[in-house]
Write a protein that binds this DNA or RNA. Structure first.
Lengths: 225, 225
DNA sequence: TAGATTGTTAATCGATTAACAATC
DNA sequence: TAGATTGTTAATCGATTAACAATC
């Protein structure tokens, strides 16, 4: 599905980008916000590439894939590019997010994520522990698991960050899918299975550190983007 | 570099596996430990695949790459396979790990990782905050940043988990590399640059959640491993 | 044996990089 | 103009999947 220019604006309603490109768009935007704050209005592909430690070709190819062009050989317009990335990633009203499971990780994630991206709102956290329910963590209210269905409906929560204990991970994921959650960021170290209309992003810390251990042991190059 | 059978044992000193295969080995092992605890001695490729939500071919190809075979068409010997994975990932004495930066994330990671893998020892954490230094978090002692060089040397710390604030990330990473750290697990959301003999594994939470947001918005399938 | 399972090669898919024409 | 920069196609690389012969 390719982008079509339409009356000066982009008709990018159904543009599906490669996963790796989407990951980089998120990084480009954050770098560019810093660049903009420094008062720079334009940036060359090789400059942006340098800030991310990737190649200029890769930056230009990503721009091409998202249908963004620079004109004038003065580099990319920083403000325009930030906006174009926002048009792709964000929804105008923003998306509501819940953190499910408020242990050490759940609390750290809530505190860290809250307010960090203007179009991602952490609107609720959930836990089973009585002493946590009703309290606020990182400025976000904690609810009981019984309130999950109601809150998801009322607040139109579409994304869940899963930080429950491992023995609860799979069952909770299925409940979330059942309740209409459309995306899950899995912080537990359990390989999850969810219905295929649910977007699943896994982050398994033990895999990551064991991968580092393997490559340290074998002295192979293992640097990632 | 391929494996050579040698007198019934494997000569796999320099076997370099694909990154994705290494990631799965870590997952296989943890699944297999559960399988073993359930009293199962052998497992078929399709069974192991089912537990990870991948294909049986992929499991068999990974076994082939690591030079592990089943014989007897009774499936893979669970105990042998766990051991073979350990031979690849672990070092006999284990590797020492430091957590650098003891904010919410640093504390959560320390607590979670500590004691979880027998061959990965979190031996120290580091922070600048006076009130944290000298205390123990998750059973691990916190030291001042000034003690970093000495501790790395004395304890032979090879891996660092980086959980410092974003404005300290790059400078701290370079210091760690300078001090001889061989692998960094980067929990900060800053794209790091380190000397190429240092293994770097990035985990950028914001990228992950924005990626989920993008695919939820565009309703594309985006399931990962 | 027939059927289930494995190990391995070849084909395919997705992502990165090289090459290069076009632009200012 | 010459040099720097861009946008895009083709080639390459890495990983997954299909196909299938071999084994028990």
């Amino acid at each position: 599905m390719r982008l079509i220019r339409f009356d000066g604006k982009y008709s990018n309603m159904k543009l599906d980008l490669p996963k790796r490109t989407v990951e980089r768009l998120s990084k480009y935007r954050r770098i560019l916000l810093g660049t903009l704050a420094d008062g720079k209005t334009h940036i060359y592909s090789h400059e942006l590439a340098g800030l991310l430690h990737i190649t200029a070709v890769q930056v230009r190819r990503d721009m091409m894939l998202m249908g963004f062009s620079s004109m004038l050989r003065k580099g990319y317009d920083v403000k325009d590019l930030i906006e174009a990335i926002g048009d792709l990633i964000d929804t105008p009203a923003g998306m509501n997010v819940a953190v499910v499971g408020l242990g050490n990780f759940g609390q750290a994630v809530t505190t860290y994520l809250q307010g960090r991206r203007p179009k991602l709102h952490i609107v609720a956290t959930f836990d089973v522990a009585k002493e946590k329910i009703g309290r606020a963590f990182g400025g976000v209210q904690c609810y009981s698991m019984e309130e999950l269905p109601g809150m998801i409906r009322e607040q139109n929560i579409q994304i869940a960050v899963l930080t429950v204990p491992i023995d609860q991970a799979q069952s909770t994921a299925l409940i979330l899918a059942e309740l209409g959650i459309k995306g899950i960021l899995n912080f537990t170290t359990v390989p999850l299975h969810v219905p295929e209309d649910v977007c699943l992003e896994e982050y398994d810390m033990i895999t990551s550190i064991e991968k580092v251990a393997y490559f340290v042991k074998h002295r192979g190059e293992c640097q990632e983007g």
